[in-house]
């Protein structure tokens, strides 16, 4: 809304801008809004894996949509982080299948061993826990995703080992 907001072109690399423009080009000229998911994903990757307030504003202005419209998307999808996450983002599913298969016990592992609740980052900055909705792996419930890798049929022991193995 005012001069303090830097344009997106100043915040991202030329390569990232080119990829965003490629997405925008896939849609009609007056529907730049359609590129918001991709734009946020590309922007996040270049910003320490999170979407800062100025970055979201810049994306909104670049796509010529209201800022709140970007904020809605960024808060809806769990793959967007609004705060700087730890080195590893662990997305733990707590939907019906996983819940029935014991995801509550897995949450407890995070509480006891790292002292963190969903949305928090461990003190050593290593692990950020996110509670997410179904990731379509009910057959392997309970499950979590670390980075972009699924880990299924978890037990408290296998989860503990998995977390300890992260650098």
């Amino acid at each position: 809304m005012s001069a303090e907001t830097r344009p997106l072109t100043d915040m991202l690399s030329a390569d990232a801008m080119a990829r965003i423009d490629a997405w925008i080009a896939k849609f009609p000229a007056d529907r730049k809004r359609a590129a918001v998911l991709s734009a946020l994903r590309i922007a996040q990757a270049e910003n320490d894996n999170y979407l800062s307030e100025p970055l979201m504003k810049a994306v909104a202005d670049y796509l010529e949509i209201p800022r709140i419209a970007v904020f809605e998307v960024a808060t809806f999808y769990t793959m967007y982080h609004l705060e700087r996450p730890g080195r590893h983002v662990v997305s733990l599913c707590t939907n019906v299948s996983c819940m029935l298969a014991g995801s509550d016990r897995l949450l407890q592992v995070f509480r006891e061993q790292y002292g963190i609740e969903p949305g928090e980052t461990s003190a050593d900055g290593r692990i950020t826990l996110k509670e997410v909705e179904c990731m379509a792996a009910c057959g392997g419930a309970p499950m979590c995703e670390v980075g972009q890798q699924y880990h299924e049929n978890l037990t408290t022991e296998s989860l503990t080992t998995l977390l300890e193995g992260l650098d």
């Binding site: 209201p66 800022r67 709140i68 419209a69 904020f71 809605e72 808060t75 809806f76 909705e133």
Partner: peptide, 17 residues
């Protein structure tokens, strides 16, 4: 547009940017 629906599911709330 100044208001929006922020968050998801039970955490959804009406908010500004």
């Amino acid at each position: 547009r100044e208001l929006g629906a922020v968050g998801r599911g039970e955490h959804m709330k009406i908010s500004t940017f």
